[in-house]
């Protein structure tokens, strides 16, 4: 029961502080799920991101479902997924009910003037941490640079890039 509560509240926290969605919440998941609770290793985390990219749905939900199942079975996955969805559900419900023109308020603009660049700093840190564990020899560095080139210069979709990288892994490993 304690594990279910821990899963629920951890992912509630992640859901509540994930502005902008997508990669913005990776640093927070990393701190909570890997550093604090040790529910996943860094390598498993990278595998989940790859799986999340290849399957439909938001990364936050994919991670919650996966981690929940790994740590506490089916009901663990329900607790974690509910936890990650509930904050945005409640906040949007409140906004839909009470506010219009929230986006024009000077307070929200001020808050986001600070929060948005901070999120960039957080993503930079996630990149640094995952990179220092993953890019350990010239082959992995080459794979990283090749993938980055295809994404930025080639404007390729993440899925073909991941497939190409997987095939290169088969050849290089």
């Amino acid at each position: 029961m304690r594990l279910f509560a821990q899963l629920f509240f951890t992912f509630f926290k992640i859901g509540a502080f994930t502005f902008g969605g997508g990669y913005a919440m990776l640093p927070l998941i990393q701190v909570e799920v890997i550093d604090t609770y040790g529910w996943l290793t860094l390598n498993e985390f990278l595998e989940i991101i790859a799986i999340a990219e290849m399957t439909p749905g938001p990364v936050a939900i994919n991670t919650a479902t996966f981690v929940g199942y790994r740590t506490a079975g089916f009901f663990g996955s329900v607790a974690a997924t509910l936890g990650v969805v509930l904050p945005s559900f409640l906040i949007i419900l409140l906004i839909a009910r009470l506010f219009t023109g929230l986006t024009k308020s000077s307070w929200t603009k001020g808050v986001f003037t600070g929060v948005k660049p901070a999120v960039i700093g957080l993503i930079g840190l996630a990149l640094w941490r995952l990179g220092s564990v993953t890019l350990t020899d010239y082959k992995t560095i080459l794979l990283f640079l090749g993938a980055l080139c295809l994404l930025i210069k080639g404007r390729l979709h993440p899925i073909p890039v991941l497939i190409l990288a997987g095939l290169s892994g088969l050849l290089l490993a």
Binding site: P117, L127, L130, T134, L145, L151, L162
Partner: peptide, 30 residues
């Protein structure tokens, strides 16, 4: 073993995905 070799290649690409997100968001936000 095949999955492990696949992920040997996929992991650096995932790091590149994060790098790409950082690049795109950074250009828009900073």
């Amino acid at each position: 073993p095949v999955a492990q070799h696949l992920f040997y290649g996929i992991r650096p690409a995932v790091v590149a995905l994060i790098g790409h997100a950082l690049y795109k968001l950074g250009r828009k936000i900073l």
